[in-house]
């Protein structure tokens, strides 16, 4: 457990020290959202109709944008090699890195989502439904993205290929995330979709660390 906490503390420390870079995802999240009222018209009923979907899609992109910092810099300065060689399960270290990544990317999006719901003129219920759904969904995005980031460590082409690898795997989270929020907002209830989001999170927690670890071992062979 000590290496886990040490790595978590190191990654969080690095993220705080590179404050602007860490906030980039959250800034993108807000900035991109503000384009939609300009693009589709600012009438409240249109915005409320598409609000949940737009916010979820932007959350996907915001997480995607920050994936590259997950392993690439560790690969370049050699610390990734030490993690692979360490006498600690690599899966555990991967999990620590994902947790640190989520705390500095996904959690920010969760915290900001009520504000975005306000900007998209969503009904008051969305102020708790949207963060709740994102709280269950964004860790899954980090975990799935970690596989894609690890597969591409050290490759010649970066982010465009990450999107091609990761976005198809994000689609289930998007579908159930949006339908959970829309379900609550339309008064149909979204408990089942929330349950599926939770199930996907558990699946990702079980499967993503070993897959990521395998990908990192291949990268450093």
């Amino acid at each position: 457990m000590r290496p886990f906490l040490a790595l978590l503390r190191r990654d969080l420390g690095l993220a705080f020290r590179h404050g602007a870079e860490t906030l980039l995802g959250a800034i993108f999240f807000t900035l991109a959202l503000s384009l939609f009222p300009l693009g589709v018209g600012a009438s409240a009923d249109i915005l409320a109709r598409i609000g949940a979907g737009v916010i979820w899609v932007l959350a996907l992109f915001a997480v995607l944008l920050t994936l590259e910092r997950l392993y690439q810099s560790d690969y370049e300065d050699g610390s990734l090699e030490l993690m692979v060689l360490a006498p600690v399960p690599l899966e555990l270290l991967v999990f620590a890195k994902c947790l640190a990544h989520w705390l500095t990317s996904g959690l920010l999006l969760v915290a900001m989502s009520p504000l975005l719901a306000l900007l998209m003129a969503l009904p008051a219920e969305a102020y708790w439904v949207l963060p709740a759904a994102l709280l269950l969904g964004t860790p899954t995005l980090t975990l799935i993205g970690s596989i894609g980031a690890a597969l591409l460590v050290g490759s010649r082409r970066g982010s465009a290929l990450t999107a091609l690898l990761v976005l198809p795997l994000y689609i289930p989270v998007l579908i159930f995330g949006v339908s959970a929020v829309d379900g609550y907002l339309m008064g149909l209830g979204g408990g089942a979709q929330m349950g599926i989001l939770g199930a996907m999170l558990l699946f990702a927690m079980a499967l993503a660390p070993p897959a990521t670890a395998a990908a990192l071992r291949v990268a450093l062979e």
Partner: peptide
Amino acid sequence: ARGARAASILALVG
């Protein structure tokens, strides 16, 4: 060889 192995992992995830 690296590409082949990375792609194999992706195929399994997919």
